[in-house]
Design a protein around this nucleic acid. Structure first.
Lengths: 161, 161
DNA sequence: TCAGTGCGTTCCAAAAAGGAACCTGTCAAC
DNA sequence: GTTGACAGGTTCCTTTTTGGAACGCACTGA
């Protein structure tokens, strides 16, 4: 299977991965959430080659995750900002950060701490059920075929995808 | 920056991405959560080349996300199962699935539906604050340097990483 | 002995990434 | 009016990583 075919799979993981499933793309998005917006800034922070950066930004714009906004005319310059769809990737980022905090913090501890402005406390992200509010775990979830399932899909009895 | 240097960054996103930030790795993990465990099964489902599959499984085992368990002697055969650290990636997977469900479902609707055994309802994953239980959004989060922050880090005033 | 199964490895061509230099507008200073 | 700087790319060439198909090995069972 090639990269371009991924988004045609009847699987939400495959479709999302076709947008963000790349090491540089994930790091670019991390920086976007840290309010980095300009080509030179991404390049300096990431140490990515300019060629690859241009490619990734183009793809993210095309995917509707970033938008290119002119911040100056003559010469015309653009910055890249998260769209609403891009902001919706926040739970993905937080889940990634949290896994790293728990499993890769090293002996010095986690690099950053998060504070929730709403309640004023340090916190960790927790994934809960939208119906009952309890935290979810793989063993407590059943999966059923949805309306967009491939025809004749046998119910996959799985925990996720 | 090369792939191998990523895990030395003082950033939980970079460290996690150095483990799972690859299109095939994410799809392999998706299948792991769907109870796929054997080399042939991954290969048949994913259409990944055997070479790359062997490489990704090796890396995931080395990273402590999967473990190799013998399920038969003579000839010795192994299957790959999620470790506890691997199971902890569940929130990442669910966040990815959910983004795909919302933004890439297409007109037929989402491929799969999730049911929470605990409460018996269909649900979506929601990311909440561990302190107050409210859903979190990028604008409501402040970031502070933690104990593992790089020296002289100016507080990055950012939403995530 | 022969076919089949499970899990890889090897080999080669094609695609993607790394690295450094170069190009294009525009302004401002010398 | 030439030189430099800045922002945002593009070009060119080399090194790595994939894709694809074939092959190897250790068994089993007929």
């Amino acid at each position: 299977m090639r990269w371009r075919e991924l988004d045609r799979e009847a699987c939400s993981v495959a479709r999302t991965v076709s947008v963000i499933g790349d090491r540089w793309t994930l790091l670019v998005l991390r920086d976007c959430f840290m309010r980095v917006r300009r080509f030179e800034a991404f390049q300096a922070r990431l140490g990515i080659t300019r060629h690859v950066l241009a490619d990734r930004l183009r793809k993210l714009v095309k995917a509707g995750v970033l938008s290119k906004v002119a911040y100056q005319q003559r010469p015309r310059r653009y910055e890249y900002r998260l769209t609403d769809a891009g902001l919706d990737l926040y739970p993905v980022m937080m889940a990634i950060v949290h896994w790293g905090d728990v499993h890769r913090a090293g002996r010095r501890g986690r690099p950053l701490l998060h504070e929730h402005k709403g309640c004023g406390h340090r916190f960790d992200p927790v994934t809960v059920c939208s119906a009952c509010g309890e935290p979810i775990s793989p063993r407590e979830v059943h999966v059923h075929a949805g309306p967009g399932a491939p025809r004749q899909a046998r119910a996959p009895r799985s925990a996720v995808a």
